[in-house]
Design a protein around this nucleic acid. Structure first.
Lengths: 207, 207, 207, 207
DNA sequence: CATGAATGAGTGTTCATTCAT
DNA sequence: TATGAATGAACACTCATTCAT
């Protein structure tokens, strides 16, 4: 009678350990042995839950994204339009320890995509989900008349995503330069240029 | 009468080969053997020009930055204020093949900083230079009355830098999503929110 | 139920293989690959039992000394004074195959000390142990009135140690010149000059 | 018209540099580059004076021996028997800086013999010369009636050689334990057991 | 299921040697 | 004759992966 283990929770446990190792040693310094040690298991056990190292790393990235996505869902629940968008954006910015860790994971994987097509595809799909989520929120806000009438939703989505990505890498590399207040200021500035409530004349922006 | 080689140009030759290897195989897949092969030498030669692999990689990053900086100098020469700033920004964005390669180099190194404090310090210093250059240009523009009277120069610098970083990583990972026109549109939008010529009432933005 | 290995005995197994490789190829020709092959393992295994090559070599030297020391303990057990001293000396001289191997190990490491301070320290500590053991035995013999009343114990200890070292290197380099009988003759001559019982007329020495 | 260089003196210059490198870095840390640098030449020039590294090292050892031999010749000139023997022995013991350097060279090469048959043969020949020199001096002393009538000249030679070798290695590894006075004391003790004049009462030895 | 011993390919690096200049 | 650039093999070491227990 084999021991019954909670497959999913065991996997998540290992993946969370993977996050910590990546944050501490970088992706290049992340070995299966370090992950196993951090998780409290023997190196060989990972083979039961993952096919290989690539699987572990990819899964760690996906899980991190899912955690962020879940938080976004919870925070935006019951809200709509720009109000929901702002809360979603806040979950994506490296504003506290947890989100800082997520940014470290994220940035670590970016450079890996160049030599690992499989990972590049994965990142593309993940990126697509974030992009789609933001675009949907913007479209929702537009349908509610919350945004400037002439807003280019694709371009606006791009501005949001670029802000997340830009601030993420800066927070990882130069944390002192990216305090939470600055991040919120840049976010709100951006939201203002989107908002219909802004006194900004349409013709002056995005032309 | 020994064979005389141009030390500097030989180094640059190897570093350019390093760029190509990084772009093709990623930083993790960049080995000294591949660099030597790409440069057309035997693995041992690199020891003549560099102390170790870290030296090669760090030098490759610094040289890439210097190339960008030199182009910025040339393009901005004889110009001032926002006009100079725009030309400088254009050299930093992944708008063509060359600048795309530079973005690939840049993004590849970001993830490496976490496990390599030495590299993190180097990146900090390089980042500081870009940040300082942009801030100086903004201050120059301000002194010429080209920017909004109430502009927070630090925050505006940050928006510029975040745009560069955000678009860089996106261009590397999802090139189809970041065509040159989109990049220029986002840049000009940002320039507009900075410019005094903008009809945007000061109170409406960045408050 | 993982495969259980006797850590200590596996280490000793590798170290004994190291001895054989050193004796056959010299310390300069001793590579991790040769050691692994001689021990019957793949090169990578050694990393499980030793931190690095220095660790292997140092441990091989220490183990060789411990083997000699253990034999000395066994042989001298229940004996005292000069009788014990003589048996101890015999274990240190390259009188048979096993002790010849030990001499080869020993001599191989001497030259290594110059460029390896860490190893020099180790050798100093080991030398100290042999010196102390011989001095204690001499002091014991003195307390039993077995040695000449005016014997300088430090100098006498030195003569014993110098004999071991001198004969060791000669046995390694010119084995034909250092047969067992010659070694025993030199040892007994030396013991005679120490012994109080030495009724040996001057003329009888060296015969 | 080619530049005329003094072949021999250029070789000796390189070999003296080799001694210094060996003393400073050990034989294992002695590279052709270090030797060339220490001698003030470029690495490639050594190929003009030596066939390969082995040639350099072997020649360095032989030259060191010749230097010692020359000193012995000079010191013993005009002397005979035990008086000459004592002066010769003194040149072989690590009594001052120069002879200490020679001991370092010597000891460094001992361990190398095991993996380098060619070097072992060389050392055998060199050893033979020292052995022969000492034996001749002893035989001369015997013919002059200076030694004990029943002295075994071979065995006595061996005691002399073993003293040199034993003290040499100890001086290299544990210099503090082998001060000049101790070396001279051990030498004179040994000379006493050889000398016919030795009216030394047993009790006086070792004081 | 879990272990951790074992594998072996691949890495950065060093170095004696060669050779065009 | 002298240079030092270039070669390429060998080294110690790391690590993902496999597998007997």
């Amino acid at each position: 009678m084999p021991k019954i283990v909670d497959w999913e929770s065991r996997r998540d446990e290992v993946l969370a350990a993977t996050w910590r190792v990546i944050a501490a040693h970088g992706l290049a310094g992340t070995t299966i042995r370090k992950i196993a040690k951090e998780a409290g298991y023997s190196p060989g056990v990972l083979a039961h839950y993952f096919s290989d190292k690539q699987d572990i790393l990819g899964s760690a990235l996906v899980l991190a994204h899912r955690r962020v996505g879940d938080r976004m869902d919870r925070k935006a629940e019951g809200r709509t339009g720009l109000a929901a968008l702002r809360l979603v954006m806040i979950e994506a910015l490296p504003l506290d320890r947890q989100r800082m860790l997520e940014a470290q994971i994220e940035v670590s994987f970016w450079g890996r995509a160049l030599g690992t097509p499989e990972l590049a595809r994965l990142q593309n799909a993940e990126f697509e989900r974030l992009w789609g989520r933001l675009r949907r929120l913007l479209a929702d806000a537009a349908s509610r008349g919350e945004v400037r009438a002439d807003l280019d939703i694709e371009a606006a989505t791009h501005r949001l995503v670029a802000l997340i990505d830009g601030l993420s890498v800066e927070a990882v590399l130069y944390p002192a330069r990216v305090p939470a207040e600055r991040q919120l200021a840049l976010l709100d500035e951006l939201m203002d240029t989107i908002s219909a409530a802004s006194a900004v004349p349409p013709a002056a922006i995005g032309s």
